[in-house]
Structures are given as structure tokens and as C-alpha cells.
């Protein structure tokens, strides 16, 4: 059982989800998985060595993670209200149509 590989698998899953998902909430979930992978690496390595420093660093990591989550959710709400959808492909299509209309006029 190796926690480094466990966190590596979680990181890979998060990055894959970040690159492939079209729903903004799924992108947010991917970011959460990446953050969870990083914290697992910190805490498990520290606790397996018997060091308290990993848990202390975790507080900083969690506060950063929470701030990032708040910013992402705020952006998500703004984008969803503006475009009426949280699908990235629909948002891109809407922007393209808007720019084409502006170019014609």
C-alpha cells in the first residue's frame, strides 16, 4: 500500500477531468480532487514518518483550497447568469455567434 501512488492516481483523475469535462461544476469537482490528492500526499507522508509538520501545512493548504473554491464558484455563478448555461461548449458557441453578429454589423 503506497499513498504516493494513491495521490498520484487521484491527481491524474483530477487533471483528466479538468481537461475533458464540459460542465463547469464538474470542472470544479476536478479541482477539488486535485486539491485532495495534494493534501493526501502531505498528510500521509507526514503521518507515516511521525512528523506533525504535515498536518500543520495542511491548515494552510485547506485555507488556500477554500479561497480558490470561493473564487471558482463566484466565477461559475457569474458565467451561468450571463449565458444561461454552465456548459463550456454552449458558452463558446454563444460567444462565437455574438462576435459574428458584431462583425456583420
Amino acid at each position: 500500500m503506497d499513498f504516493v501512488i494513491l495521490s498520484l492516481v487521484m491527481l491524474a483523475l483530477g487533471v483528466y477531468g479538468l481537461l475533458t469535462n464540459r460542465q463547469l461544476l464538474k470542472v470544479f469537482i476536478s479541482v477539488e480532487l486535485i486539491a485532495t490528492a495534494a493534501t493526501i500526499n502531505f498528510v500521509m507522508l507526514a503521518s507515516s514518518l511521525g512528523v506533525g509538520l504535515g498536518q500543520a501545512f495542511l491548515i494552510l493548504a485547506f485555507s488556500t483550497d477554500t479561497a480558490v473554491s470561493a473564487v471558482i464558484l463566484a466565477l461559475l455563478v457569474i458565467v451561468s447568469k450571463k449565458y444561461g448555461t454552465s456548459d463550456i461548449s454552449k458558452i463558446i458557441k454563444s460567444e462565437e455567434e455574438k462576435s459574428e453578429t458584431e462583425a456583420e454589423s
Binding site: 500500500m1 503506497d2 499513498f3 504516493v4 501512488i5 494513491l6 492516481v9 507522508l45 514518518l49 512528523v51 506533525g52 509538520l53 498536518q55 500543520a56 491548515i59
Partner: peptide, 24 residues
């Protein structure tokens, strides 16, 4: 399965002996 059956070899580097309270 890789996390369950594989392992990364290599010793840990130097680390402090600080407890959680000290570290915090």
C-alpha cells in the same frame, strides 16, 4: 490496483521531529 500493489522505494529525506503543536 497500482496504489494497493505497487510501492515507491526510497528512504525519506531529513525531517524535523516537531510535533503538531510545535510545528503549528
Amino acid at each position: 490496483l497500482p496504489a494497493i500493489f505497487l510501492s515507491v522505494s526510497g528512504a525519506a529525506g531529513t525531517y524535523s521531529e516537531a510535533s503538531f503543536g510545535d510545528a503549528l
